[in-house]
Nucleic acid binder design. Structure first.
Lengths: 243, 243
DNA sequence: TGTACATCAGTGAACGCGCGTTCACTGATGTAC
DNA sequence: TGTACATCAGTGAACGCGCGTTCACTGATGTAC
């Protein structure tokens, strides 16, 4: 009675967190079927055999549930990317970039509506709270880390293109963000030039742009073999960041 | 009574098409305020001082109204891009590409919710009918035309990268689509290599990826000066397609 | 030109539905002594 | 260990709202002779 409860909380606590999980899982299933706007608390609870008002013991409002799903989504995507990247030999920068790109696309294809929730049209009248920021940046942190380790390793880089003065302050912020990462040595700070950071941001944009275009149907009529096109596209983007 | 009506239709016809326009305009205003999912026929008609059932004289269903808005949206965006591009000297390929890019972003910023309707999360349970395809391709047709005229003019191109066999059939389809355009001479067909078409598709993806990232808030924390970053980004993408 | 009829626009009530959220409540689980 | 009390989970009814769509209708506009 004692140690077990001490370690995992009371029986009530355990049941509670299991129910929170079940609500989110059910909501995710509904998300996959009806999209973010079709997500209804009543439908979720109905599906679970609960009465609709009971959900308020677990989430104070629909928006809070949405927030939880968004945070979970970013973490799920972030974890998938981190795992895929970690499986590649550290010195194989091209491989690491490709693993990230494939992980993003793979996750998106497996969680289409979650992807749309994160990267599609923002939900009207809903504004994401601050606690979504950190999980939202997990993927870009991985990409920045690859970039940083590349310059530290002295990987040959493409000839730098000029970066206008008006863009440099923003790149300084990004550089600062990158070097905050404990896994990025401060040695990288001086080596991450404005040009490289721009390249990184553009690769990142190109990656998500490609996935969004495919998922949202804007490549119909031009690309049928999505696997092949995406792989080639990402190889080319990888060359732009020096992998 | 005769010629006027012959030319513009009966008075009833004219009132009718004006009302169709007014309904669409009101719906667009609602779109801008509540987003695509918040678009309600009742609210639109209420706003117009009509009774809700009256809208069925003009649109058989909510989905048909949505379709009309989507088609109008693509045409509005397409027209903006065509006009911007036409204003630039034909031989200034870089300028033409930049004009297109700026026109897309400018239109998107002015019509945020319409942009989201076209390029954001697809509306759940709604599938776009075939008549949206042609207007949807206006922007890409302009881009393909620039590319085609560049190769015909013998503009120096970046060193071609290999295109895997698995991607070539898709590029053949795109090349065929490009040469169907009466403004693209058949001379271009042989010159539009697989590599160039890939570059074109990637630039197109990068353009819309950048606009979507900005509009949907994914550059918060990394880019503040959106104007400057976008301009530089598009210059770089322009270099990739040889402008 | 004038009349009879057909077409159409807009009305108002209704159908059937679903939603988020609140609230007073019952009964079970946990806590303190 | 046993009892008294506090905490919490889940219930069921209700509030107040909005939605898309149908339908029989009135009255105005158009058409044919």
């Amino acid at each position: 009675v004692t140690t077990d409860l001490d370690r995992f909380g009371t029986a009530r606590d355990r049941v509670r967190s299991e129910l929170v999980k079940e609500i989110k899982d059910t909501a995710r299933r509904h998300l996959a079927e009806f999209g973010a706007t079709g997500l209804s608390l009543r439908a979720v609870t109905r599906d679970m055999g609960m009465v609709s008002s009971a959900v308020y013991r677990y989430f104070p409002s629909r928006d809070e549930l949405l927030t939880a799903l968004i945070i979970d989504g970013y973490n799920s995507l972030g974890l998938a990317v981190e795992k895929a990247e970690a499986a590649v030999k550290k010195s194989d920068f091209r491989g690491r970039w490709m693993a990230c790109a494939q992980a993003v696309r793979g996750w998106a294809l497996e969680h289409r509506h979650e992807y749309a929730l994160l990267f599609g049209t923002p939900v009207p009248k809903y504004s994401a709270p601050a606690d979504t920021i950190e999980p939202a940046s997990r993927v870009s942190r991985v990409l920045l880390r690859i970039l940083a380790e590349m310059v530290v390793a002295g990987q040959p880089m493409p000839a730098p293109l000029p970066v206008p003065k008006s863009v440099r302050p923003d790149m300084a912020v990004v550089r600062n963000f990158a070097t905050l990462d404990p896994l990025v040595g401060s040695a990288a700070a001086g080596l991450l030039t404005d040009d490289l950071l721009v390249r990184g941001l553009m690769a990142w944009t190109g990656l998500f742009g490609a996935v969004s275009f495919e998922l949202f149907g804007h490549r119909q009529g031009s690309v049928e073999n999505h696997n092949a096109f995406f792989a080639m596209e990402m190889e080319r983007l990888g060359s732009q960041i020096g992998t």
